[in-house]
């Protein structure tokens, strides 16, 4: 079985699916551990939205590459280098402020991405993007409102929210760096060049940070590699848990 897709449209959709699968899995790690019952359910909802998006992206990618693989193959039968998610989404949950900061950055990136992708020349992809944009618009609001309350809350919550932003900001540049694949799918009218999304991201995030009394971290050169299959040590641990059942009992059914 070949793991990389030779169809650029499929390869690009797999990136989106890898991104939402890894972050969706991270959100499920909060189950039963969130600060309140209400937030436990909210975090599970966010995770379920992302896993639902993953299934749609993977399924469409498999159709476009000819149907030899399905969503299960992509989620459970690939190794770290085959995953092409940006490094941001595999970073650990940390404390609640870390998770909300990570989610603010993700939703600030994904929402304009999906909104533009809703104009894809592929009607199926456009439809997936339209419904996904509605979901991440809410994610942006939820993470944003929490960041405002943490940043503008107590001294400790402010300190932790600022530390979370400072720790995660090195993973921001990778989100907006276009590579050959991004440019190819954008040129064909199928996909979106992420470098065109930065203004929308800044507008959304700057508004939240101002209301949260949080400082926008200086733009570092940043950490990158996930989109090329070079990951931090965290992804292997995520996949070990995510893929355990499939690896131990291939094609198990109940």
């Amino acid at each position: 079985m070949s793991f990389a897709s030779c169809d650029p449209r499929a390869a690009w959709l797999m990136r989106l699916g890898d991104t939402t699968l890894v972050l969706g899995h991270r959100m499920t790690e909060w189950l039963s551990r969130a600060p309140t019952l209400e937030e436990d359910i909210a975090l599970a909802n966010l995770g379920l939205d992302l896993i639902g998006q993953t299934r749609l992206f993977y399924t469409r990618a498999c159709e476009l590459e000819g149907g030899a693989r399905d969503e299960t193959d992509l989620a459970y039968r690939r190794a770290e280098p085959d995953y092409r998610n940006p490094l941001l989404v595999e970073q650990p949950n940390g404390n609640f402020a870390d998770t909300m900061a990570r989610h603010l950055i993700f939703a600030g990136f994904a929402t304009p991405l999906y909104q533009r992708l809703a104009a894809s020349c592929d009607a199926e992809t456009a439809g997936i993007a339209t419904r996904s944009a509605r979901e991440t618009t809410y994610h942006l609001r939820h993470a944003g409102e929490w960041m405002i309350r943490l940043g503008d809350g107590t001294d400790e919550s402010h300190e932790r929210a600022q530390a979370a932003l400072d720790d995660l900001w090195p993973y921001v540049p990778e989100l907006f760096e276009a590579d050959d694949l991004d440019r190819a799918v954008a040129a064909s009218g199928f996909g979106v060049d992420p470098s065109t999304l930065r203004d929308d991201f800044d507008a959304a995030v700057d508004d939240v940070l101002a209301r949260a009394r949080l400082a926008k971290p200086a733009e570092p050169r940043g950490q990158r590699g996930g989109k090329a299959g070079r990951h931090s040590e965290h992804l292997g641990h995520i996949l070990a848990e995510l893929q355990y059942l499939q690896r131990a009992y291939p094609d198990a059914r109940w």
Binding site: L37, E38, I41, A42, H142
Partner: peptide, 20 residues
């Protein structure tokens, strides 16, 4: 019913808990 710190967070929690 639910617990929330303010009206906006209560609205969001209500959305997440009761309108799934």
């Amino acid at each position: 019913s639910l617990h929330a710190h303010d009206a906006m967070m209560a609205l969001q929690a209500a959305r997440d808990v009761y309108t799934r």
